[in-house]
């Protein structure tokens, strides 16, 4: 433990303090250990059942025999396209909303409170309702049909609450002095925002985006009704495309004898997530923004 030097026993008579200190440290290490252990358990479980099925042809081939043979090439492509649509709609929308909620509106104003309340409720809408809604609104009313576009748009509605909450926090966490300094330099509000606040908030923004990528990748019910079930290689955003999570669900719950392939596809999904997270961290580092937000001070 590299950071124990900051705990300085003040007086020998304060043994209750020390006990409390130790108990706290113990519980937090225990909790963190538990989180990591359970996740390791799940991951190992998935890999044991799935890794043996994975090879290059599994990653690029077409789906055959309902997924029991062949690969998942078209499905990976569809998943990436759906994710692309989701992020390109939801990220700008939620950052703009977060700006409104933090920088523009008084947080106790009627509008801000109304928007927040709506977002909280939105987070509680069951994913299957999102799916049925997306089906009625995007695929039928807007005439987008079963398509990657419909799926991506439905998912962007779905990740809005997470993205906006985390973006709000990210912007709020930028120290006040940054703003004061910018104001002293005579920068306009928008310049301050784009030159000072957003770059400073970037690592925390990225954490929110990564969280919602996870949510989008994990979603099944909302996509069955919107981006659909077609496992062909999509030619445009207007084509229907099956996502990895839909494929996993189908193999695990619907296709007899599809279990091993379901786990293999789950391994690919986790690997994709790792690659995305790693790339985000690298990009942030490359932009000189630090890889993670940290409170500092106590190290």
């Amino acid at each position: 433990m590299s950071s124990t030097q900051s705990v300085k026993p003040t007086r020998s008579g304060q043994s209750t303090h020390t006990i409390r200190e130790l108990t706290a440290a113990f519980s937090i290490w225990l909790a963190a250990g538990l989180v990591m252990a359970i996740l390791a358990w799940i991951l190992i479980d998935i890999s044991i059942r799935g890794l043996s099925q994975i090879n290059l042809s599994f990653l690029i081939d077409d789906v055959t025999d309902a997924g029991r043979s062949g690969g998942i090439g078209p499905i990976i492509l569809s998943t990436i396209l759906i994710l692309f649509v989701t992020l390109s709609v939801s990220v700008p929308l939620s950052i703009a909303t977060a700006i409104a909620l933090t920088e523009q509106l008084n947080s106790e104003s009627l509008l801000a409170r109304y928007v927040r309340r709506c977002l909280d409720i939105l987070a509680g809408v069951p994913s299957i309702v999102f799916g049925l809604f997306g089906n009625a609104f995007f695929t039928i009313t807007l005439g987008l049909g079963y398509s990657i576009l419909s799926g991506g748009l439905t998912l962007s509605c779905m990740v809005l609450p997470i993205l906006i909450r985390t973006a709000e926090q990210a912007i709020n966490s930028v120290p006040l002095e940054h703003r004061h300094a910018a104001a002293a330099l005579g920068m306009s509000r928008s310049t301050t925002l784009f030159r000072v606040i957003l770059p400073a908030a970037a690592p925390a923004l990225a954490a929110g985006i990564v969280l919602s990528i996870g949510r989008a990748l994990a979603e099944t019910a909302a996509l069955i009704f919107t981006s659909g079930y077609v496992a062909r290689t999509p030619e445009s955003l207007f084509d229907s495309g099956r996502s990895l999570s839909v494929h996993i669900y189908d193999l695990a719950m619907n296709v007899p004898n599809g279990g091993a392939r379901a786990y293999a596809a789950a391994c690919v999904l986790v690997a994709m997530l790792l690659v995305i997270n790693e790339t985000t961290a690298l990009l942030l580092k490359f932009a000189g923004l630090g890889s993670t937000p940290h409170a500092g001070g106590c190290r």
Binding site: L39, R215, A218, I248, V270, L274
Partner: peptide, 23 residues
């Protein structure tokens, strides 16, 4: 509490946890 290297890993693990499909 965590040493920096472990903190990074812990964050990563939590992020992966978020992306595991509910099925």
């Amino acid at each position: 509490y965590a040493p920096p290297a472990l903190a990074t890993w812990h964050r990563r693990i939590v992020e992966i946890l978020a992306g595991i499909p509910s099925v």
